[in-house]
Write a protein that binds this DNA or RNA. Structure first.
Lengths: 234, 234
DNA sequence: CGAAGCATTGAAGTGCGTCAACAATCGTGG
DNA sequence: CCACGATTGTTGACGCACTTCAATGCTTCG
């Protein structure tokens, strides 16, 4: 299960055999959770981190009025809350967007391997910094791109990230989000998210049905998104 | 000069006398830069990091069409590009919003103190994670808050952050940004940013003239912003 | 003094939100 | 296996927050 995590790391940095062994030892247990379950609540004290082995998670921030923004999506291989290792509590919830399998990594084991393998400390620090870079790109999308461009951008980003861990098909991938959840990622209303998908369809860029995303014209999609993947540090 | 940086760190974590000495040794030189200068360009290879001693910096991301989003503001005491220590290149520019004084910190000195003082490695990791939390709050603002609420939120956040390093007055602070730059922080056009300031004025919440921000009604401002400072981890 | 940047204002347009209804699909229990 | 409500997706009409375009005065600074 943890192979997908190693795959992701190795796409960006070198991991020695010894370090790999250390990483293989950090998961204390694995848990299955159902879609829509809240794994971590904002503010709650943390002593574990979660590696996602299967399924999709979201970081979600709520406003008193009930409006909600998803500030990040996680796919297999991602640590969902590695920043919680240093922060000890989160400023957002972590929720399951699909049925998931997660590995529970006690903070003291992280403490342990980062002390024993200072290079791994750097690797995981790096990893939280890539998360942050993805977040900055989201801010750029939310602040400056149109709904159409924003959605196209998200689809492009996920295509790359899923490819890294071997979860994309050549022309698309499983996309388990409802349109409501997609809207929350993009800072749109449900209704407008729906119309935006239809516009992407109408332009023959993308198909989306039965939780399957098909990319009909990737360079067209990247064009609309003004997609430049360098922020992903691949 | 570095005292302001220590002040900021100590507001969130403990720093021993020994660690303090180590930190005092990281700055190789100090440089003055003029407003509007670009200190770091997106993509360029880095071997130094910058601590801001005086003035304001921004992280800025450009789109091909010329639109621009500021994804973060930095004030005295902040590392502007600590994430560059692990990433080695940035996904955004770093630009001076006012005349600034920065400390140049070679990456190998950072390497050095984080190896010698593993606790400092944790402190600086933590620090980049707080940056990321501020970014998530920005995504929430850009995705869900109205222009008025967004601007109020920014003013509230900066009031707290400036207070931490002793740079706020009781009722406000120096605010060197032009309205254009403010607009770029908030994902608004210049014109609408101007009208939004006027609305805050009209409601007697805030005054802004001659680069001075005066907060006339802080709890009113926080109300409009739906401001909850827990994401700042103070 | 003139030029350039900055703040302000007005008028008109539009992208996205809101409200409301309905269709399609899904999960569940009888 | 069907009946049912609940969730998800779709559509239409209308409204508004924000953008766009354009002009004008104000400040700053060489």
């Amino acid at each position: 299960m943890i192979n997908v995590h190693l795959k992701k790391l190795r796409r960006r940095v070198e991991i020695s055999a010894e370090e790999e062994q250390a990483i293989r030892g950090v998961v204390a247990e694995t848990r299955s959770v159902r879609a829509d379950q809240i794994l971590i609540r904002s503010g709650e004290e943390l002593s574990n981190a979660l590696i996602l082995f299967e399924g999709w998670l979201a970081r979600s921030k709520d406003l008193p009025g009930g409006d909600r923004q998803v500030t990040g999506l996680h796919i297999a291989g991602d640590f969902a809350d590695l920043h919680g290792f240093t922060l000890k509590r989160l400023d957002h919830d972590v929720v399951a967007l699909s049925d998931c399998v997660v590995g529970v990594v006690p903070h003291d084991r992280l403490q342990d391997i980062t002390e024993r393998h200072p290079r791994l400390a750097r690797v995981y620090w790096y990893s939280t910094n890539v998360d942050a870079a993805i977040n900055r790109e989201l801010a750029l999308s939310l602040g400056q791109r149109s709904a159409l461009s924003r959605m196209a951008h998200l689809f492009c980003e996920l295509y790359l990230r899923l490819t890294v861990v071997g979860l994309a098909r050549l022309d698309g991938y499983d996309f388990p989000l409802t349109q409501r959840e997609l809207a929350e990622c993009l800072g749109l209303t449900l209704v407008h998210a729906n119309r935006t998908i239809q516009e992407l369809r109408r332009r023959s860029l993308v198909e989306l049905e039965n939780r399957q995303l098909t990319i009909l014209d990737r360079s067209g999609l990247e064009g609309i998104a003004e997609f430049d993947p360098s922020y992903l540090y691949l």
